[in-house]
Computed example of a mutant assay.
Amino acid sequence: MYAIIETGGKQFKVKVGDVLKIEKLNVEPGNEVMFDRVLLFQGNEGVKIGSPYIEGLKVKAQVIETAKDKKVLVYRPPSKKAVHRLKGHRQWYTKVRIKEIIGG
């Protein structure tokens, strides 16, 4: 049994017990969050496909932590002169554990 949810502009295939790194949510660690944008659900009865979302189906998850990811280096090579740039960026993320799929 699994579901495909949408959060932060991305889609994730989830099942109970999975741990995901998603875009940062403004939720304290230890609290629960509900994802109601479920695109697809596969269970014992078969596959349900939403248009675009499935009504009445939600995924409950518990927030583990909010932190910054590893540094990503962005390098801009020189065009005509010997001027180049090297920048770094660390993206915030929220780590969640999927607890249950409700309504499926």
Rank of each mutant, 00 (worst) to 15 (best):
M1R: 13
Q11P: 13
I5D: 09
V59I: 05
R90C: 10
W92F: 13
M34E: 12
V74P: 01
D36K: 09
A67F: 11
L20Y: 04
A67L: 10
V63A: 02
G17Y: 07
K21P: 12
I49R: 06
G8F: 15
M1G: 14
L86W: 13
R97F: 09
K10Q: 13
G9N: 04
R97K: 15
Q11N: 13
I64M: 11
S79W: 02
I22S: 05
V33I: 11
I5N: 04
F41C: 04
T66H: 00
E55L: 08
V47N: 01
Y53T: 06
G88C: 07
Q62Y: 07
A67G: 08
P77D: 11
D69N: 15
A82R: 07
L40M: 12
I22N: 05
K87D: 13
V19N: 13
K15E: 15
L39A: 02
H89F: 05
V74D: 06
P52C: 01
E28C: 00
A82Q: 06
N26Q: 03
L86Q: 15
V63S: 01
S79A: 02
R85Q: 11
L39F: 04
T7C: 15
K21Y: 12
P52D: 01
N44F: 00
G30A: 05
R85V: 12
K87R: 15
I101M: 03
P78L: 10
V33T: 10
M34A: 08
G9D: 03
K70W: 09
E28W: 00
K15V: 13
P77E: 10
E6T: 12
N31L: 10
Q42P: 04
L25I: 11
K70A: 12
G103F: 01
E55I: 07
L73M: 13
V38N: 03
R85C: 09
L73E: 14
T7Q: 14
V27E: 08
H89M: 02
E32W: 00
K58L: 03
M34L: 12
L86C: 14
Y2W: 10
Q42R: 13
N26H: 02
V14T: 12
G46H: 00
Y75H: 12
G88I: 06
V74K: 09
R76E: 10
E28P: 00
V83W: 06
N31S: 12
V59W: 06
T94P: 10
V19S: 14
I22G: 08
K81N: 05
K13P: 11
I5W: 10
G56C: 05
V59G: 06
V83H: 08
V63D: 01
K13Y: 14
